[in-house]
Nucleic acid binder design. Structure first.
Lengths: 112, 112
DNA sequence: CTGCATCCACTGAGATACTG
DNA sequence: CAGTATCTCAGTGGATGCAG
């Protein structure tokens, strides 16, 4: 790490957002949750190929940032956990849409 | 890797955009280039703390994606290289702004 | 002034097996 | 069902020295 003498140098505001959504599965998780809350297991199946550990890591991080909410419920002694956007988390959606929009045109461009 | 049987499972459109801007220095580079084209050295100084190798890696990747343009010029036998947005690259700016906007409110929220 | 080659450290993610 | 504990590995980035 280089300590900037006095000056702040470059500090791009997009970085804070990126650090929140940069996990390999993060945007996919948020994509699934658009359709409503989702159980851990269902989420895992929907994503396909993510280990429990990694999914837990991602969900914990998102919860810590306040983007999603975790809710436990007990059914016949079996614990179920569901995840859903928080109101605050939903403020991320326009930014994700902007990325998605660009991504679509970019992918189309590559093929063309 | 799990091969999805027939279904495509989740394919979030934001991923393509993220893969383009996900380098550690990428958004900062693009942030600096908003003010106009910039020489390699000036860019490096502006960023502060990036090695020549890593900066080169980033710039090559951005150039390969068509986001920035590379231009060489020779002055008294010394090679200078400048980088600038391509027209296509500028289409990324709204998406970056959306991220930046969210990042700012998010940072403010954390402090609050 | 730029860029490349080498080598190394760190982090994120995957595999697996185990717990409440 | 949901989550934890280890271990392993690949990818990314950083330091340094050399070359055009």
């Amino acid at each position: 790490m280089v300590t900037a003498p006095t000056d702040k140098l470059v500090d791009c505001p997009a970085l804070a957002a990126l650090s929140v959504i940069s996990g390999k599965w993060t945007t996919r998780i948020l994509w699934v949750l658009r359709e409503g809350s989702c159980d851990f297991g269902a989420l895992r199946r929907a994503l396909g190929g993510v280990s429990a550990k990694v999914l837990t890591d991602h969900l914990k991080a998102l919860e810590a940032e306040g983007v999603i909410l975790r809710r436990e419920r007990s059914e016949a002694g079996v614990v179920h956990v569901s995840y859903a956007y928080s109101d605050y988390g939903r403020t991320l959606i326009p930014a994700l849409d902007a990325l998605g929009q660009w991504g679509l045109t970019h992918a189309a461009r590559d093929r063309g």
